[in-house]
Amino acid sequence: MTTPVERTKAVVDARIFLQMLSNAEEVTIRGLVQSVAIGLLKHYPLNVELDASASTLPEVWAHPTAECPRELAACTRVVPLFPTRTDE
């Protein structure tokens, strides 16, 4: 179970990661982006959790309205903690 501290850290770390990506000239370490994304998603809030937060703190959060993007086959899939590498 994800704790509030872990969830908050995931949101903050995701912001920092996106800021780093937005300022990077290029990403040169193969697999880095995927590895960091997996770690961030481990405790990232789900829509149901964002919805509950929006009900409690409407001045901070909005109710999520976006559906799963078509390019993501399964938005509810579990992200493995130790993914296997398929490029070797």
Rank of each mutant, 00 (worst) to 15 (best):
16 I>N: 09
55 S>G: 10
30 R>C: 14
8 T>S: 02
57 L>F: 15
31 G>V: 12
30 R>I: 15
63 H>Y: 03
35 S>T: 11
46 L>I: 11
64 P>K: 00
24 A>T: 13
39 G>E: 04
59 E>W: 14
57 L>R: 10
68 C>T: 01
56 T>L: 07
70 R>D: 01
68 C>D: 10
17 F>S: 07
56 T>Y: 09
53 S>K: 04
13 D>K: 01
60 V>A: 10
66 A>F: 05
7 R>Q: 03
56 T>F: 06
63 H>K: 09
8 T>W: 02
59 E>M: 07
70 R>E: 02
58 P>N: 11
59 E>Y: 08
62 A>G: 07
51 D>H: 00
43 H>N: 15
70 R>M: 02
34 Q>A: 15
50 L>C: 07
60 V>W: 06
57 L>Q: 07
11 V>L: 06
65 T>E: 03
32 L>D: 14
26 E>V: 11
38 I>M: 13
44 Y>G: 13
13 D>Q: 05
28 T>N: 09
55 S>L: 09
8 T>Y: 05
65 T>M: 08
71 E>T: 00
29 I>M: 14
49 E>C: 03
16 I>S: 12
57 L>H: 08
59 E>K: 08
68 C>S: 06
8 T>Q: 11
42 K>P: 14
12 V>I: 10
51 D>T: 07
28 T>R: 11
60 V>T: 10
54 A>M: 07
41 L>A: 15
25 E>W: 11
41 L>H: 14
49 E>H: 07
30 R>T: 14
55 S>C: 15
25 E>G: 09
60 V>Q: 07
54 A>T: 08
6 E>T: 02
50 L>V: 08
48 V>A: 11
67 E>F: 10
70 R>C: 04
18 L>R: 02
6 E>H: 08
28 T>V: 05
65 T>A: 03
12 V>E: 00
31 G>M: 12
22 S>E: 08
25 E>C: 14
17 F>M: 09
